[in-house]
Nucleic acid binder design. Sequence first.
DNA 1: CGTCTATTTGAATGTACTCAAAAGCGGTGG
DNA 2: CCACCGCTTTTGAGTACATTCAAATAGACG
Lengths: 193, 193
Amino acid sequence: MTDIQPLIQHIEKIIPLDEEAQRALSDKATIKKIRRRQYLLQEGDICRHYNFVLNGCLRMYLVDGKGGEHVLQFATENGWIADIGSLHLDQPSRFNIDALEPAEVLRISKEELIGLYVKHPAFDRYFRVLTENAFVGMQHRVLQNISTTAEERYLLFLEKYPHLFNRIPLVQIASFIGVTPEFLSKIRRNLMA
Amino acid sequence: MTDIQPLIQHIEKIIPLDEEAQRALSDKATIKKIRRRQYLLQEGDICRHYNFVLNGCLRMYLVDGKGGEHVLQFATENGWIADIGSLHLDQPSRFNIDALEPAEVLRISKEELIGLYVKHPAFDRYFRVLTENAFVGMQHRVLQNISTTAEERYLLFLEKYPHLFNRIPLVQIASFIGVTPEFLSKIRRNLMA
DNA sequence: CGTCTATTTGAATGTACTCAAAAGCGGTGG
DNA sequence: CCACCGCTTTTGAGTACATTCAAATAGACG
């Protein structure tokens, strides 16, 4: 019996859960501890779980043909992280997920989740809203990428994720907004002046 | 009674619909004809409907502070288009949707859709899968934008949307992949040689 | 044929990248 | 406590990628 209170609280911001639904969720969710640099998902493997972050910090990224890393997502407290595409299509993932800080996550497999959907429509609603929000977030990011300069993207990043500024190495932020670390360093210097 | 067969066929690629569900859908969906350049959604308005394209071609785009247009999405036959963020939060949209070609769309309001969800869980499943797929598509696009050159993005666009190549003006494709039309023209020339 | 819009071209400029090297910054062990 | 190691960040010079602006060309449509 793991302590899933943070997850329940997070869900209840969107939709209330009755006692039975909470118990069902508690039965399905398992806790997993991850060390710094440890993989939660490795390229080529099939993503089998949704992961809810209790504490720590993870990232999901792609490694391109030249060995360059491109960060698609960070996840910290109360964030979800998974390769949705791999999970739902049972296909090998092109992404890696690993820990920038030691972390604890709650894992729920797709099969367990489908079981929850069937018995408790509230989960249905919650995960739809979750996916919709994630989709809207990605839309904004696409727009930023096609319509702004690197400096603007950096400022928008700080605005959107102020808590990550002094928590995530510059090189990771650079990768997230799509510039080289050298150039982001120069952007910072310009902003100082 | 509008002919919603294309929509039903599209849904049934994901999940079968019984007679009653089909009738319910048919009752809720209304057809709308749009002329070239006509708005389906205008910046500042709240997006009230999901739109399924029966024929023609639409685009959703943002106008930035300098008057530049940035295309977020094209939609042709059997595609959906809507500002999900505006729709679900009842907030004014920052986007415009208009027609690049005269089009016919089926519209379903959020309220009607919620009614369908409650009575027919199949719609629930369908729209979850739809949103998940859209999300995965946006993820790919973000990755492309942060990890490839304009030429690569153009080639990937042609690969993914071969039917749009000689259907959508170059200037629109340029806007979609995030380059100026002049530069895309030069990219094309280089690819010829 | 003329008009309107879309596309192409070229020159000059700006934005961001590459590569190499130096500087900073924890940690760890002596 | 200091010295050293590994890793991150900064700097600078040179280069590549992409934009801007202005003008010419090409297509589409009445």
